[in-house]
């Protein structure tokens, strides 16, 4: 499958060896990735692994303490944050939400609301929307700006499974019709949108990266999630064998501690075919869904 990302366009944003520290602790370090026009990049990783931090660095909300972030000049960003609570005292309808950060023609507003399936809710107060409706309203707001780069921080949180598939369909449609680059943060460590061009797994640094396409076509996966889901979602299975200590050093599964983690430290992938990771991975040829991988060390918790 030829993705638009392969056309060789200049990246919208690229992070080069980015590190961000707070209170003497590195939240992320050594993060490298870029998003090109028409490309969907998905960030996955356990809680606290720096997914949101990396995304915020990409859009300039957080300044990197080391490394560089390059954005195209005049880059227009549409952002759907992870947590957004609107105080009841603020009277905000969906319609008013749409023009929150910039003016918008009525026609474009309605087109965006319709594509997100929220046109009938345009006069509702946002405090009365359900989780999924609110996410779709936020998505409509972000796409109405016609952004070059759309950043979605866990857009399907609090949305049921069929709603999740509908939202992923919407994201795919946005990419296909507008050709914008999309940086997506997944709430699930293993399941990503099938259209994702690049999956980047973070655990305080970039653990591994790859494409999810082939996995989603595997018979085991289709059996597990159904063919409809398989068109939309894909398993990106891998496991980590080291943890990052608060001081930035790395503790490995065998108990040894080093200053950095090395590519050969082993972020073991279980993809069913080999794609070029640029470093030596062990491909174990087992893709039994995402329930049966042992994650060690035991310190990692997955919801």
């Amino acid at each position: 499958m030829l993705s638009p990302a392969n056309t060789g366009a200049k990246p919208l944003v690229s992070l080069n060896n980015v590190g961000i520290r707070r209170n003497g602790r590195w939240l992320v370090r050594g993060v490298d990735f870029s998003v090109s026009p028409g490309e969907i990049v998905t960030l996955i990783g356990p809680n606290g692994s720096g997914k949101s931090t990396s995304a915020k660095a990409a859009i300039g909300v957080l300044k990197p303490d080391e490394g560089t972030v390059e954005r195209l000049s005049g880059l227009k960003v549409g952002y759907v944050p992870q947590k957004l609570a609107v105080d009841w005292t603020l009277p905000l309808t969906v319609r008013r939400l749409m023009t929150l950060t910039g003016p918008l023609a009525d026609k474009e507003m309605m087109a965006a609301l319709e594509s997100a399936g929220m046109a009938h809710m345009r006069d509702a107060e946002v405090q009365h929307l359900s989780g999924g409706e609110f996410q779709r309203a936020l998505m409509a707001r972000a796409i109405a700006r016609k952004p070059d780069l759309l950043v979605l921080d866990e857009p399907v949180q609090g949305v049921d499974f069929s709603g999740e598939i509908a939202l992923y369909d919407l994201i795919k449609q946005i990419r296909n019709t507008t050709g914008c680059g999309i940086l997506l943060i997944s709430h699930d460590l293993h399941v990503v949108m099938a259209e994702t061009d690049t999956v980047i797994c973070l655990n305080g640094h970039v653990c591994c990266r790859g494409t999810p396409q082939t996995v989603s076509q595997s018979p085991e996966y289709v059996r597990l999630f159904g063919s409809r889901a398989a068109q939309t979602l894909a398993v990106y299975s891998h496991h980590h064998d080291h943890t990052h200590l608060p001081d930035g050093r790395v503790q490995h599964a065998d108990g040894s501690v080093t200053d950095h983690c090395h590519s050969e430290d082993g972020h073991h992938h279980n993809h069913d075919h080999s794609h070029d990771h640029g470093h030596d991975h062990k491909h174990e040829h087992e893709h039994n869904g995402h329930n049966d991988h042992d994650h060690h060390p035991a310190g990692e918790r997955h919801a």
Partner: peptide, 14 residues
């Protein structure tokens, strides 16, 4: 108003 709703959203969108 935008930063009242979410400061990071306001920052991200300039």
């Amino acid at each position: 108003l935008a930063s009242t709703v979410n400061p990071e959203l306001a920052e991200a969108e300039g």
